[in-house]
Design a protein around this nucleic acid. Sequence first.
RNA 1: CCGGAGGUGGCAGAGUGGCCAAUUGCAUCAGACUGUAAAUCUGACGGGAUUUCCCUUCGAAGGUUCGAAUCCUUCCCUCCGGA
Length: 324
Amino acid sequence: MDKHKLLVILGPTATGKTDLALSLAKKFSGELISADSRQVYKGLDIGTGKLPGREVEVKRGDGFWEMDGTKVWMYDVVNPKQQFTVKDYVLQAGKIVEDVIKRGRLPIVVGGTGFYVKGLLEGFASLDIPMDENLRGELQKLSLKELQQKLQSLSPTKWASLNQSDKKNPRRILRSIEIIYTYPYRKTNKKLKIKSKKWNMLKIGLTAPRPVLYERIDLRLLSRIQQGLIEEGENLHEKGLSLQRMKELGLEYGMMADLLSGVLSNEQFTTQLQTKIHQYAKRQMTWFQKEPDIHWFDITTLTYHEKVENLVDSWYYPGDDKKD
RNA sequence: CCGGAGGUGGCAGAGUGGCCAAUUGCAUCAGACUGUAAAUCUGACGGGAUUUCCCUUCGAAGGUUCGAAUCCUUCCCUCCGGA
């Protein structure tokens, strides 16, 4: 019983993941499943880079786009006013992956949200513990100190399991308390293995030397602005997306909230956003660095595209590498 | 040329005799991450030795003082106003 194959393409922003995925999809008759925490939102198009770098023919469906003849899933699955979480992603994307497999096509998971990728590919236990809006509402009123004290008294073990950084992170402490409240007796060390090793996976990682990456980010932002990024932001806001929500959405949208409210000049908007995206790319690299089994490719090497194709080919058609 | 304000670590900006290697924010660097993850959070951030140690810093040079980024003198530079 061979496990089904699943291709993963990840890496920091602005490395051309979508472009690569699209061309691989064509070659290996695949479909893309986006793993991007912001592309799931309807209307966030230019800022989230839903379109690839080159001109393609696009058809928009419900919950997917079709570009250049290949389907891209997990685009436009929810209204940006609503909160979408890993839980939602894992559920929905998981179904899509199964469906793509069922139809005999190669699922290609492509995206920069490491947490989503990890959730989809490996799953994790606490995903089953639901959010408790009432509890959250209460806890949100507390200061960091109070949250810390609360968790410590509720469950010293849980508290001790947090790392130094999370012990000072209100959001994480809050979730820990939430978990303790719903499963007070569950031992923190009890782990449910969900699906790891369910698929035969090949992970491709795209990188570039940092100066190059940053320059690509800067140029890409400029071109997004030309494509109407600001108008997109204005439009969303006019349609009722609050500035506060835009802030939460981060990067281009967060900065556009400041631009629209007049806090920033156009020039400040651009330069500050560029550094925000640099920082984001760095965080992505930090995340992916410790992810195992990734085959990394430097996109500044001329032949990387070809090398990726060869690798995918030998993985997808094992024992068939003598063909020409 | 006169009057006024000011020159602080990559930037912004506190400090106005000892508690100052110098608050804070930003940037930078490193990192965390099990339902907000483009979010949230942590650490480092003059140099060196590395538990309370040393060295070089607050425009420059002198001076006062036990002790100065903080007071005095001169010089250099910037900004505003008047000539």
